[in-house]
Design a protein around this nucleic acid. Structure first.
Lengths: 248, 248
DNA sequence: CGCCTATTTGATCTGATTCAAACAATGTGG
DNA sequence: CCACATTGTTTGAATCAGATCAAATAGGCG
């Protein structure tokens, strides 16, 4: 089944089709989903902890992150988001945000009213399963991060993060050769991996020294995918990018 | 609206009503959900990483945990489960298990065929939202653990875990006075909090020394709830136990 | 050019790990 | 009912991965 003309250009559809199959009707309905598109500059909060949003936001271009601060003012990043993600889809079910969402780079965002989203799901109940599945994969990624934070050392964590980002960016067509965009600062990585910026810097030097990766000007180049997977203990099952779940 | 006679005894309904409102029909359908009940002894795997289950399991009595091992053989526990939880509900949407589920104590389990669960959701679409919401709260708990593992010290982590378990056990009616059942070993706690058993032991002595809690023979006694919340930086919003989400 | 932000380096410190052994509690079989 | 095995808790000492502090360097950009 060929995709609708512009569906490959639509990162949401691209993303959902990386984890499930959509019917033509579902694809059509997603393309017709009303949204207000805005450009937002880097380092802006989109929703904050405590907010009660009446819309959710589709990331069309750029990188975003979800995060929260400790009482002592330390930041922890929970997730990096890439085009096609709806990072605050959960606000449809959970009224109060328990964490914040912000841009890391300039972003193009599509804001979707909850009412419109609910109407979409009412008319296409199959999409509820799709989005439910997507939030479950989100949770699987959280678990993998828990494993890393709890039981893996710095080098393994960094390598694992790189592998994960490559796989996810590949799934939405942002990989070019052995290269993906990864416009994060070392400080942002450290806040995601529970490390200090200094230590992340030194760990990167180690990975570079072993000729596993190159990471410069927001572009990550994988020099040795096998080696990177090995040092990152990366096993992509948890991303559930296969679609074999459809075979009963 | 009064609950059906035996619904308070049904931990699933009890749990779901702690996070949402059920219609009488939904409650009835849940009570009628066909399940095979089994007793399982402690430290048994229920599902393993890589499995492709055709059923999911409702925890009726006892404590269970979800976990995974590092390549280097270190265990990380992702979640502690209490009566009313369906820890592997995700297997309904994700075909292959990316982690394992096992008992921590002797448990009574109700096994529900996926087919029956799907039929239930088909007949009561509102329940899809309820379970979706539940898995989103699950993910919120994962995020809070990420925050702890990444950015909080040992004492804060242990205190936070105690607060969380108290809130969750209270929600399903297992709190008695200032006491909850918490039949975990210090080693299990250490595998959940990313610490060594030795350090957990010393941290517990510190919490005891400050007269915050007592924890003996599987029973946790909170001596100073306010103090415990404070040292654990515990803010229960993320558990979404309020049901005010229904007010549009 | 000068400002601002990000990366890098060096030195020191510490929270937590590791290793090893003692101790306590509970259960088991003779 | 006791000897003993097993599992969990506790203690002590040595060590280390990663944090912290402070300062230098490098890029981008108005």
């Amino acid at each position: 089944v060929a995709a609708a003309p512009n569906s490959q250009a639509n990162p949401l559809i691209r993303k959902l089709e990386s984890i499930t199959d959509l019917t033509p009707e579902e694809r059509q309905a997603l393309l017709a989903l009303p949204m207000r598109v805005h450009d937002v500059r880097a380092d802006q909060d989109i929703v904050r902890e405590g907010d009660r949003p009446s819309q959710c936001c589709l990331l069309l271009e750029g990188f975003a992150a979800r995060f929260k601060f400790t009482d002592k003012g330390k930041r922890q990043i929970f997730a990096f988001h890439t085009p096609g993600d709806i990072p605050d889809m959960l606000s449809l079910q959970l009224k109060t945000m328990d964490h914040s969402l912000g841009t890391l780079t300039p972003c193009k965002l599509g804001f979707i009213q909850h009412d419109h989203m609910r109407e979409l799901l009412r008319q296409h109940p199959g999409l509820t399963d799709v989005f439910w599945r997507d939030t479950l994969i989100d949770a699987a990624i959280f678990r993998e991060w828990i494993l890393g934070l709890g039981r893996r050392d710095a080098k393994t964590r960094v390598a694992h993060l790189f592998c994960e980002m490559v796989m996810r960016l590949r799934a939405v067509g942002l990989e070019q050769g052995n290269t993906v965009p990864l416009p994060l600062t070392q400080n942002e990585v450290s806040d995601a991996l529970g490390l200090s910026t200094v230590h992340v810097n030194r760990t990167l030097q180690a990975l570079r020294g072993e000729n596993l990766v190159e990471w410069d000007k927001g572009v990550l180049t994988v020099l040795d995918w096998k080696g990177l997977k090995l040092t990152g203990e990366f096993e992509p099952t948890y991303l559930h990018q296969d679609r074999e779940h459809l075979a009963a």
